[in-house]
Amino acid sequence: MPTFYGSAIDSPLLLGTAQYPSPAVLAESFRRSGAGVATVSVRREAGGSRAGEDFWRLIRGLGVRVLPNTAGCHSAKEAITTAAMARELFDTPWVKLEVIGDTDTLQPDPFGLVEAAGELSRQGFQVFPYTTEDLVLADRLVAAGCEVLMPWGSPIGSGLGLANEYALRTLRARFPEIPLVVDAGIGLPSHALRAMELGYDAVLLNTAVARAGDPPAMAEAMARALEAGRLGRAADPMEPRDMAAPSTPVIGQAFLP
């Protein structure tokens, strides 16, 4: 099970809290998934509103760690300020750092990301960077102080799965000691399972569960897929080969040529 900045989490699923049809469905999805971490955010609130407090009470009741994000930030400066506000509200040094560089794909801005990761690390934050699958960028993020990397599988909310398995495998091979989380793009349990087969430590997803017809059932399906992938990886899979190799013993077979 993954360990992030010294904290062991007893599930490889980090689950988002947005877009559920109701708070009750959100809570039930968390219960059935066994997710150990909930991602949350901060937004402008009107005076006299209780929306933020009601939501925070619901999340506290789930008994999970919270990972605040800096969603919607398009510069290092915005992300750093948002992270500081989130740290005060949620009382955690954890931050899922998002610095968006492109509005259509929500692709991270690698330059702003490294800048913000360095500054937040200096300020004592424990940074979970939402990044692309780029190897050199990952290296810079680690140098900037990140002890977790969260490469995208494909664009946020797309459900396209792991678009670049080669690069994700390369990250796993190059950073054997860094917890790796596929963040974004998971649409199906098979995508989540594949991430674990590749040796990833965890998966962060939201839309695939929240926008499913039956979110709690999908949450449980994701949890089971993650467990199957983890077990399969640990069981040391066979090597694939191009030609057939008979699985039934041939010794003593009748009609041998």
Binding site: Q19, T39, V40, A51, G52, F55, P68, M85, N206
Partner: peptide, 10 residues
């Protein structure tokens, strides 16, 4: 002035 509170996030 920005005033924010906890909200849903992914």
């Amino acid at each position: 002035l920005e005033v924010v509170s906890p909200q849903q996030g992914g």
